[in-house]
Design a protein around this nucleic acid. Structure first.
Lengths: 92, 92
DNA sequence: TCAATATTTAGAAAATCATCTAAATATAAA
DNA sequence: TTTATATTTAGATGATTTTCTAAATATTGA
């Protein structure tokens, strides 16, 4: 169930860019929003979708909310791709 | 441009299932459609999106049109994921 | 407590998407 | 050439998605 959510989450270019930004280190919602033309509530919406897909985690530090990557789901998605090069298939 | 198209293409569960079916070997549009509840034109639509994303190829053999995987784009998508584990790498 | 800052939630509008039925196209077989 | 089969295209409809503005919530510091 979260597998499909994750695939949908990474289908959006803005959300992929957010994930890419977070590779360099954790960022607050405001710092993330500052990289985009769109309004903050729109970015907040994208962050919510990434969070629901378990691709990011958030933690509050005072007024700020920091976002960080959660790479465990990336592993799951990657193994789906792997199977296309493993000719023997899942069951062999 | 095709990179984003490919990510959008795999975001749909029906299309991922089509790709999974094609791992075992090439199939005609009709054979693919027979695996789903939805009508043939709907499956044809999904095949078109997979084709536009370069994830599959098609060739006509008489009345039938055979679909097959094109794994080169899978490689591109996979390397996007790889970069999340390679801290020094490049993003999108 | 009050004002400022950071962020999210609510609700709406426009765009995109998945699916359907009906019709069109392409090939094969009679 | 006519009929049957395989598949796609066209157009419509309902659902989902992206984005916006306005309002709400949470926290800090005066």
């Amino acid at each position: 169930m979260s597998f499909n959510e994750a695939f949908k989450a990474i289908a959006d270019p803005t959300r992929r860019q957010i994930l890419t930004l977070l590779r360099k280190g954790d960022l607050t919602a405001g710092e993330i929003a500052s990289h985009f033309e769109m309004q903050k509530p729109s970015v907040s919406h994208h962050l919510k979708i990434l969070k629901q897909a378990d691709l990011v985690q958030d933690r509050r530090v005072g007024q700020h909310i920091y976002y960080s990557l959660n790479t465990t789901v990336f592993q799951d998605l990657m193994s789906w791709f792997y199977d296309f090069f493993d000719k023997g298939g899942k069951g062999s």
